[in-house]
Nucleic acid binder design. Sequence first.
RNA 1: GGGUCAGUAGCUCAGUUGGUUAGAGCACCGUGUUGAUAACGCGGGGGUCAUAGGUUCGAUUCCUAUCUGACCCA
Length: 959
Amino acid sequence: MSDKPANKYPVNLLDTPFPMRGDLAKREPGFLKQWQNGKIYQQLRQVAKEQNRPKFILHDGPPYANGDIHIGHAMNKVLKDIILKSKSLAGFDAPYVPGWDCHGMPIEHQIEKLVKSDKDAIKANPGIHARIVEYRKTNGLDEKETHLPSGFIRELCREYAAIQVERQKVDFIRLGVLGDWDNPYLTMNFKTEADIVRTLGKIHDNGYLVKGQKPVHWCVDCGSALAEAEVEYEDKVSAAIDVGFQVLDMAALSAAFGGVNVGDQAAFAVIWTTTPWTLPANQAVSVNPEFTYDLIATEKGLLILVRELAEAALKRYNIDANEVIAQAKGSALNGLLLQHPFINRQVPVICGEHVTAEAGTGLVHTAPAHGLEDYQVGLKYKLPVDNPVANDGRYISSTEFFAGETVWKANPKVVALLEERGALLANKKLEHSYPHCWRHKTPLIFRATTQWFIGMDKVVGCETLRDKANRAVDATEFFPAWGRARLEAMIKNSPDWCVSRQRTWGVPMTFFIHKETAELHPRSVELLEQVAQRIEKEGIEAWFKLDAAELLGAEAAHYEKLKDTIDVWFDSGSTHFAVLKQRAELNHGDDNRPAADLYLEGSDQHRGWFQSSLKTACATLGQAPYKQLLTHGFVVDGKGMKMSKSKGNVVSPQDVINKMGADMLRLWTASTDYSGEVSISDEILKRTTDSYRRVRNTLRFLLANLSDFSAADVLPVNQLLTLDRYALVELANFQKNLTSFYAKYEFHLGVQEIHRYCADELGAFYLDIIKDRLYTMAAESHGRRSAQTTLWYITQALVRLLSPILSFTAHEAWETLNNDGNVFVDQWLDIPAVQDAAALQTAFALVREVRANAQKDIELQRAAGALGSSLQAEITITAQGDAYHALASLGDELKFIMITSQAVLHEGEAAIAVAASSAEKCERCWHYHPTVGTIAAHPTLCVRCDSNLHGSGETRQHA
RNA sequence: GGGUCAGUAGCUCAGUUGGUUAGAGCACCGUGUUGAUAACGCGGGGGUCAUAGGUUCGAUUCCUAUCUGACCCA
């Protein structure tokens, strides 16, 4: 440990290969190699099996296979790893199979970008782009051709996802996360794809899959639905018209406006719209319940307008003379019946929060078939979603006035008809931002289409899926507790889950639909299993290339394959079945309990994975897939602000690892209270490094002083000195505290406990005191071996206790100790019991209080210049009662506890006196002792050192 | 705009039915040691407990509002 010349009289100074500085960034990769070469994860599984340990299943929420990992991913994986390692050390069989979410829009979008020759995309994925170029060449396509077969697109998506998975995997492994990295689960694995399909089949079999209508972006030229990313917004000029809906019941109108006399004039609720063609689908007029509405008498009748916009509206209608005869809150108008301006239909006034007072009239034309907000508010009021517009953008034959017309040509005709009916109050042109198709650059329409839903309120058996989900939430344990309220609220407000998507890269909904009735084939469950078996072998492509006749025979003439894919949230939501149930190591083997013990994800997943998993599990098994849910917050910068490239406050895990090492990132993760948002910044990481050094140096001291000691030298507990037995009691106490923090997932309190133990318990107390014995007593003396026995237990326990958090450092210490095997395969140390534990704790609490006071008094003398080191002091302690007896029990060895050259005890009123020693300082042990100078052969030594070096050595009982 | 959560020393965190001068570690300052030495010991300074009201004999702790931030939704 030191390069300085040896003392004339040797002391037991030992060295250790465990360096003061970890140099983690450089050395961790080497440790990782050892874990991989030694197949530590596999070994751990084997041992767990042999020991028949109870299982603890943490199911990994699959990150999406796109883009490099960020600090949030890193934190999430580290938390999981800490939990699993601590569970394993606590005696559980805690496997970890990492997963990835591989289907879906974002990946498909990346491929689309490559197909469209986006420069950035090509730079990032040259290989896949080369395949596209090659494909065009081989198939004689134009080099700018963007219409490529969907089978080829899926192939590219699969390849892209695989590349992303490998990139992310490397970073995750580098964090020190132990898991089955060679066999992760991917939602695009053929078997998993098949099991996702089976999950859907089971839900259908259980009766929860229902067909419905929902508006989507629709391109008339494509003849298909578009995803949000395929929509481009461009300016467009539209007709903006004001339309009066006549009030049917004048008495109700009067009542709504506080009983005002409404006379015999006709009254109109006035709406404003930029899409006249949607009026045939009108089912309601929405008002904002909080707004105030005016009832205004004009020459065109009584008009209802929101107060803020009334003046502008009247101006638009060229109405000068008017009088506000009454006002009412929007909520008062709820339920008022109106006459549709040209169709024989009565429509209600309804309340919706989506109504604003920014433009128009404050009353909104509501056509559930043509707008998402309209659709959603329509769900609340159970309005029909009748859609009069067909795939080709033309009105269906039953549409009054406009049958067969395209919606764009119908626009002016609708306006003309309104004019004719006297319902048109204004007709202006408006330039506004409007959705367009990214391929055709033509305006899109919102159009209700047939979609498939998992029904939340359909009664199956005697209860709904919502009922089941509620019960499942009740049965779940939440960390922190507020997660329950959040998930409950989600379930309460969640509409039917629309699981169908019109996408290319997704698991297909493998159903056959009757061409006429659009009903599912009666043998759907059986057919679906046949399809699933094909998917197991060939992946989802098996469905897309399947000829219906292969399964249906002659019936195929009447059926077609459903073209929809499944919402990607369903993929990950099915993994409790598609992964946990399918892999023996992740299967509890008991269907009566939730599949997993724990799901652990960011708080955004209440709406995401926590919920999708809950719904699929309830719809298939009637229970939650997890026993416990643990949520962590998002990572923000030091000021609590979200990280963003533009702000320049992004901390990347790769940077932290390359500069400081993964253990620092792990320690940061463990130190923080993750239940809220989590801060990271240079200063925070700097502090993390500081606290790491404290722990590391403690380990270094321990390891150095054990370097001439091994398990064979361990003494039985009843032969240990008093102080050492007390240290064992405190060690057991520390282990109990820390393992309890691990069990409660309260790692930040655990880190504080680790720190308290290393700094207060060891650094400032126990280790400081036993240095005298370690250094000055004979190497193999009982007093020294007693201390080393204690250090051995402390180190063995500490290494294990640190390993879930400081995995690399613990591994390094484990090797330095020459321990067999691997720390992660071990369990918490069995710390030997101490018979007089309670008495020791009581006594030492008193002793330490006196010691603290003595240190203050010594400090006063030091400040006054009377002495330097505390060994230069001689103290006289006066105490009474229990304190006196506690101190007295240490006899002559009290001075070692106090680290003074002399400590005299008297019984009496509590007091401490400190004086500088008048004796000489022993060159070797640094104690000031009257015997220094009395030994002729060694005039600079005290008798103690002389005996330890040349005689039989001193004896210690207590300290 | 709505729902949920958070806001205690420069940093990370404690604070246990509301009860005397609000704690710890790190950082900072002073100091000792030079046998954990780019380490360790001892001592010290530092907080209007986000802000403003309210309940109470008394509130960091309970209630309300506001501000700031995060997540979800609109």
